[in-house]
Design a protein around this nucleic acid. Structure first.
Lengths: 277, 277
DNA sequence: CGAGTGGTTGATCGGGCTCAATAGGAGTGG
DNA sequence: CCACTCCTATTGAGCCCGATCAACCACTCG
């Protein structure tokens, strides 16, 4: 059991550079918990006392609103640190962490954060990188929620989950943890009814296949088309016909302004193209 | 001019612990740019080459989608670092930074990040804290977009802006930078039409007052009510009648599960209350 | 086998998007 | 200084996506 944990720990990015002795030491300093699905690891608003590593299983970051809605902010896949707000100077948790499945969680008291950061090569960097990725994911979801139709948002949510916690099975890729229609709804800002209808439809059309609490994506390519291009176009702006080069960080043009605003039709939400002059 | 900048720089949190000599040195290493509103500081997808401090003015973080929609991810108020993905190991910008108003921006090449972090007390910590706050804000907006009605989202957006960049004027608090109906729509995932209608209505009812590109909130309290409680309820969970204490980080109860799911009516989006057993 | 949870599906209704048309500033040029 | 042109804002009419209301079925577990 212990040995298994050590091997696992040594495979996670934050601890990948540690030798056997260090791993053992680290593990000895930790609390190991085997949790069933649905267990609360920490709660929104609680003071941050420890930081955690998810050895196996899956964690959901959840927020509740005063009117009772629940929204899923992020999913944490196995191998990642979580509850590491300490690194950012936060003193209370911003979300509630709930195991989405049976999980193994290692936890260390906060003071060890600095110890690890100082002693373990790449530990702090890895943790910060994790933060960056999560911020990016939230930003992506903001864009999705703002601009995409329900259908597209759900497609994106499924694709994101198989990307992060996908498990290859006969006939496709399965989401690696139990997930209900309601859960999907909580991630996409809709209702379980709509999710149910949509999944039924997709199943008929051969895009997915699902049983109770399990979803298998059988045609990721077509689903991806449904979701619309996830990437923003900021990066690959079309060449300009007038040879003008983006000013960005050089002499700034007077009145650099958003000018074009072509209604680009799309039965979605607002849609206007803008190009900086 | 130089002196003015030095004084300004010394007042910003990341550099607040520096003495006069250090400030001068830091400023000498920087590029100072005075930009008009609408200028692009960096673009989504570009490699990160420098990090920036907004001395005065206002910055918008924007993302464009393939179908032409534009969404505003964040507003950066004066005095904050931005474009600091380097600290998180990112190599390209995730958003486009555009000045929302005439602004003064200081910029340093990336390699100086480590220098500053090592040499200046609290610099890295302050930068990371900034990150944490922005992540929290994104998380808040995810919740808003998922659960609130357009009206409430717009109210929240206005309140957030006066909170971050509010300027007290006769009769209320004005948003500290030029902002169009379309901009508000881009922040809340709606259309300029809806925003316009709503602001007109609110103006009649004495909640706001607006002219071209300017919005003054004249009754923040009532607007706040409109927006619904921003805070999640995770923190202040009601006392349990059976003396049961949240398990959280102790012995985990078998089958800790989400059980209650009372439809709590609210003409919003989905709404269900859940309490962990 | 009854209770509880998760899932499916039909009917209805409304918030807010779309389409469309007009008005008022602000800047530009003759 | 006025005509012209963007750009921003306002407002009406209509319609559709998706939420809401309402049954009902299918597992799973004690």
């Amino acid at each position: 059991m212990r040995l298994l944990d050590i091997a696992e720990l040594g495979r996670t990015p934050p601890f990948v550079h540690l030798d056997q002795r260090q791993l053992l030491e680290t593990l000895d300093l930790s609390e190991v918990r085997r949790l069933r699905g649905g267990a609360v690891v920490f709660d929104e608003g609680q003071p941050i006392r420890r930081f955690h590593l998810l050895l196996s299983g899956s964690i959901r970051f959840v927020r509740l609103t005063a009117d009772g809605s629940q929204i899923i902010v992020l999913h944490i896949p196995a191998g990642q640190l979580f509850g590491i707000g300490t690194a950012l100077g936060q003193i209370t948790h911003q979300v509630t962490a709930i195991t989405a499945d049976d999980s193994v969680v290692l936890s260390w008291p906060n003071p060890l954060w600095l110890t690890f950061s100082g002693a373990y090569l790449g530990f702090a960097a890895e943790a910060l990188r994790t933060f960056g990725n999560r911020a990016d994911e939230m930003s992506d979801r903001l864009v999705e929620l703002s601009t995409k139709l329900v259908e597209q948002r759900i497609a994106c949510a499924l694709l994101r989950m198989i990307g992060q916690s996908g498990r290859t099975v006969a006939g496709g890729v399965e989401i690696g943890f139990p997930i209900t229609r309601q859960n999907v709804a909580d991630m996409t800002g809709t209702t379980l009814h709509t999710v149910s209808r949509l999944l039924s439809d997709w199943e008929k059309r051969g895009l997915v296949q699902s049983r109770r609490c399990r979803i298998v994506v059988t045609d990721a390519a077509r689903l991806s088309v449904m979701g619309g291009s996830t990437a923003s176009i900021g990066a690959k702006e079309p060449e300009r016909r007038d040879g003008y080069r983006k000013p960005c960080f050089d002499a700034v043009p007077i009145r650099a302004r958003v000018v074009m605003r072509t209604p680009v039709t799309s039965r979605g939400y607002p849609s206007q193209a803008r190009v900086a002059t």
